[in-house]
């Protein structure tokens, strides 16, 4: 039996993935070089099998020459599935502990980074409308992936997501019914167009693009888990520089501030819900 001393040595596939990421960056400017390898490699392997590539070099050949392939591949690497009001506890903490502070602002700017297909951006919009802040809030919902943004801006979702959405909404402490904010039909549900008015969907790459200034809240949930620690540090610094003093930061339920540079401090509003406040 062959025993492999792993050490620093990469196997063939691992080396090919490294080359592919370099090529993608050089050719199209998409920078996945600091993504967590454990999940990235699996997504590459998944993409290859879904799209019938036997060899990674064939995928690379096509990627370098074909912009459409690039867009499709980037979608494969980055798309994240989410739900309306995912992790109700998070929204409950926003409702009960963050909203009262937001009320003192005449104008509220929220950056939702990595919004994917938009479910959670709309969830926030619903919550703000319920709390009477809809009129003076803007949500900048961004993603690296232009295709999911297109889907997000439509605000149309499959009916099979509705059961979880209703259940989640109920657990956030809302005073209405989810159905007051959506219309259901043809196996789909549609977000009330009124709720879209204060959401701006726009493309933004956390790795290569700049800060969004003076936000009262930055939300980025289950995106950092796909990054290496160094990139997490960079992106958390980006968020910090985008936040007003006293602004709020919301992360995914298993994400932490462990990659934060020492110079930056946050106060935990609710540690278990991953809601933090900028204090310096």
């Amino acid at each position: 039996m062959v025993t492999v001393d792993r050490g620093e040595q990469l196997n063939e596939f691992e080396v090919e993935v490294e080359c592919l990421m370099e090529a993608l960056y050089l050719r199209w400017g998409y920078d996945f070089r600091e993504y967590s390898r454990a999940s990235l490699r699996r997504r590459v392997a998944r993409y290859m099998s879904d799209n019938h590539f036997q060899r990674l070099c064939d995928l690379q050949h096509d990627l370098i020459r074909n912009k459409k392939r690039c867009v499709h591949f980037v979608r494969g690497l980055t798309v994240n599935v989410t739900d309306m009001f995912r992790d109700p506890k998070f929204y409950r903490v926003i409702r009960e502990q963050v909203v009262p502070e937001l009320r003192s602002h005449p104008f509220i700017k929220i950056w939702h980074a990595g919004c994917s297909t938009g479910e959670e951006a709309y969830s926030m919009s619903i919550l703000l409308h319920e709390e009477g802040l809809g009129e003076r809030a803007v949500i900048y919902a961004t993603d690296i992936n232009s295709q999911v943004l297109e889907q997000a801006s439509k605000g149309v979702y499959h009916e099979k997501m509705l059961l979880a959405a209703r259940e989640n909404y109920g657990a956030t402490g809302g005073s209405n019914r989810l159905d007051d904010f959506i219309s259901v039909g043809y196996e789909r549900f549609l977000i009330d167009p009124e709720l879209k008015k204060n959401i701006v969907f726009t493309q933004h790459d956390l790795v290569t693009d700049q800060v969004f200034g003076e936000m009262q809240m930055v939300i980025c949930r289950n995106v950092l888990i796909y990054f290496r620690r160094e990139l997490q540090t960079k992106v958390l610094t980006l968020f910090h520089n985008s936040l007003d003093m006293g602004g709020f930061l919301g992360l995914g339920m298993k994400e932490s501030l462990r990659s934060l540079p020492n110079s930056i401090r946050y106060k935990a509003i609710d540690e278990s819900a991953r809601v933090f406040q900028r204090v310096d």
Binding site: S36, R37, A38, S39, R42, R43, N80, I225, R228
Partner: peptide, 13 residues
């Protein structure tokens, strides 16, 4: 998952 530098890496894939 486990990343190269022996840290846990979570995924919602």
């Amino acid at each position: 998952l486990i990343d190269n530098d022996r840290v846990f890496s979570l995924s919602l894939d």
